[in-house]
Design a protein around this nucleic acid. Sequence first.
DNA 1: GAGTTTGAAACT
DNA 2: CAGTTTCAAACTC
Length: 597
Amino acid sequence: MGEGDGADSAPKKPQSDAVTAGATTSSGDVPAKKLARQLDFTGFGATTSGSVALPEPPKPQLQTVTVPQSQPKPQVVGVPVPVPPQPPVPSVRPVKPDSPKSRPRPNVDGKDGTPKKQKQCNCKHSRCLKLYCECFASGIYCDGCNCVNCCNNVENEGARRDAVEATLERNPNAFRPKIASSPHGPRDSREEAGELVVLAKHNKGCHCKKSGCLKKYCECFQANILCSENCKCIDCKNFEGSEERQALFHGDHSNNMAYLQQAANAAITGAIGSSGYISSPPVSKKRKGQELFFGQTGKDPSAHRIGQFPQANHLRPPAPSSSSVPVARLGTAGLGPSKFTYRSLLADIIQPQDLKELCSVLVVVAEEAAKTLADRKNAAEKQAEYQTEASLATTTEDRLQSQKESDTQKAVTDDCSTANQADKISPEDSNSDGVDGPKGRPMSPGTLALMCDEQDTMFMSAASPNRLMGDGCNTSSQLPNGQGMSEVYAEQERIVLAKFRGCLNMLITRGELKEAECSSLARSEAAAQREQVGNGTPNPRTETGSQQGPISNGVAKTAVPPTARTSQIVTAAVLSPSTVLPKPPSVPENGGNKPKA
DNA sequence: GAGTTTGAAACT
DNA sequence: CAGTTTCAAACTC
């Protein structure tokens, strides 16, 4: 590798020139795609081809600095728009946010924690016009870098443009984020340090051979994501359940880079558990990939760490993501690298039936509120009218009644939109058919919406296509004059929301508790594990499930209770927000979602 | 800080 | 498309 390079001189560097030159050449006919191609990284993973994304020249105003979320990790949808010598954008880089490459060092640089400026490349031969250059790859101009002969700047816009085109020609997605993020993507550096980021996936996948995908050489690892079926790495250890990986992340050492690195090295060389690593010394060195074919399962202790197969092999387990993956790690085959999902701490706490129950409770509350208020109001009106004309009083009442009814319908209509918030509980759309509430009873839109949800939940399975457009939200009904009830609705909503809030608070509390439990458990387990390793104790992992870490998806398996309890919680919460949390039962649990071996 | 290793990008 | 070379970052000493 580094040999002939002579990294120094510029003997051969046809390429750099090629870039420009080539570009020129190609540009000869570039008419079509002028440089004006816009980068539309927006779609993030989704849109892959379509418009070619091309780092547009520095249009100052153009930079799409994405969402200044406070999160350190730019979730961007960046745009390789060459941002002119840009002042380091605080936390969000305009581009290729996820490019593993660009990410890590840039700003945060854990080293001293000092927020660092963007990032500075050190290119010498590429003139910063190739993807080798992080700046270029990120779509930004070099600014304050240590590069030599840099052309990635305003002064050389022309060359740069050509280079961009050339690059795009080779790979239209060159400037797109490499990591397909997900809603659960990385969120903050802390999580990054730990492990959590799991859902994201490298679009192209890595091709690591020696790093075990546990070093920053690996784009996946660098991006803090697990290797996926897109990867073609060999001897991958960056998958869920990987002890090596866990060793890297867990433990109080999470913050200690040195420790992490050490752990990584150990893992790579086989020092850390894992199958038969021990047997074959540094097997590595030689292993040219082929050696590791899994022959496996076998018992051949001498078999070289088969632990991991080339990704290609673990091409995913048919098994759905993670969940019950029993981790017999040997079979990564069955496990697949990654593909597991992050589970919310509340995952086990909230059950479908709980939602149902919650909805029911809220509906009841709403009904009662409505009834009370309505009665009150009616009474008042009646009284007023009574004095004037007794006979009319009755009519009024009827009228009111019918009014309510019509309002009810209307409610369903206009509220669905607003009431969507209520959906939060159940992501599904609200309503199912026939939802309209009990006739004759005044119900606020919110209530109706709740009921819709309830039904949804209850009859989810029976869902019919109609549902989506179903009457529920549909604008089919009209509202004559809903005036009368508006106050009632308001009051009703207020009450319901208050109750609901109480419930949410309860859940939050629960979540926090669980989190605490999980983390402490994870910590202790990690410590124990470490200790074991340190003692030279036989590898825990040697076999099958035993190794199952206490953690799965970041959720430790504890004696948490989930299930059933929730109902009580929910109900209690709704009924009396101030209620104390029921004590978590010590139910067996499936919390970690990983079966215990 | 120099030298080595690594894997992506570029090239053939 | 596979193999090789080039490159710059990551890593080690």
